Computed example of a mutant assay.
Amino acid sequence: MPIAGSPKKLAQDIAGGYMMLSPPMLKAYTPADLKTILANLGMVAREIRQEQVSQEDVLAVKAKNMKLSRLNQAEIVVRAYCKKKRIAV
């Protein structure tokens, strides 16, 4: 099943907490789709890291760190799934 919509938007939704990746959900994607998802997760993570947040704004720092945490967790899930299924990424 191809990725519905933009892969970058999928990564942004994961960062925002609107979507979570799980191994049963990843079964629908081809190896090329999984590579695209990983690339876009990295791209969105770089964009979030580039955001300048004041260190005094605790809520903004927390929100930025939560987004990065969600993206990192999604990347770990995809890489573990690929390793289990022996898909080279």
Rank of each mutant, 00 (worst) to 15 (best):
L34K: 05
K9N: 12
S6P: 10
M19A: 08
S69T: 09
L41F: 00
A15D: 10
E51C: 00
P23V: 06
V89G: 04
K27E: 15
L34C: 12
L21E: 02
V44W: 00
P23M: 10
A45K: 15
L34D: 13
L38E: 07
N40L: 06
Q73A: 07
P24N: 06
V77S: 10
T30N: 01
R49F: 05
K62Q: 08
M19F: 10
N65G: 10
K27Y: 08
A11N: 10
P7F: 03
A39L: 07
I76D: 02
I37H: 07
E51W: 01
M43A: 11
R86G: 02
A15V: 05
A88K: 14
M20G: 07
K83G: 04
E56K: 12
A60S: 11
Q55K: 11
A39Q: 06
A32D: 15
I14L: 12
Q52G: 01
R86D: 10
P31K: 04
K8Y: 01
I14W: 07
K64R: 05
A60K: 07
A74N: 13
D57H: 07
V44G: 06
I48C: 05
P24W: 01
I14T: 11
K64M: 01
S54H: 05
S69Q: 14
R79N: 14
I76M: 01
G5C: 07
V58F: 11
N40S: 02
Q52Y: 00
K67D: 03
M20D: 09
S6E: 14
A15F: 04
M25E: 07
K84R: 09
M20R: 13
Q55A: 12
V61E: 10
A11E: 13
A4V: 13
R79Q: 13
S54P: 02
R70L: 12
D13K: 12
D13H: 07
Q52N: 05
K35P: 07
A28N: 09
A63C: 00
P24E: 09
Y29G: 05
L71I: 09
K27V: 13
R46I: 09
M19W: 03
V58A: 12
E47N: 09
V61D: 03
L68Y: 00
R46V: 13
M20C: 02
K83W: 03
N40A: 02
P31L: 01
K83E: 14
A88S: 13
E75A: 10
M43P: 01
L59A: 15
A39M: 06
M20V: 12
I14H: 12
G5H: 09
A28G: 11
K67Q: 14
R49S: 14
Y18M: 09
I87H: 03
L34Y: 03
I3P: 10
M1L: 14
L26Q: 06
E51P: 00
E56M: 12
E75R: 06
Q73P: 00
E47D: 13
L59Q: 15
K35D: 15
Q50R: 15
L68D: 03
A15L: 09
I14Y: 08
K9L: 11
K35Q: 14
L68R: 00
K83Y: 08
K83D: 12
V44F: 01
A28R: 15
L71K: 09
A74F: 08
G16T: 05
V58C: 08
I37M: 14
A80C: 05
M43G: 06
M43Y: 09
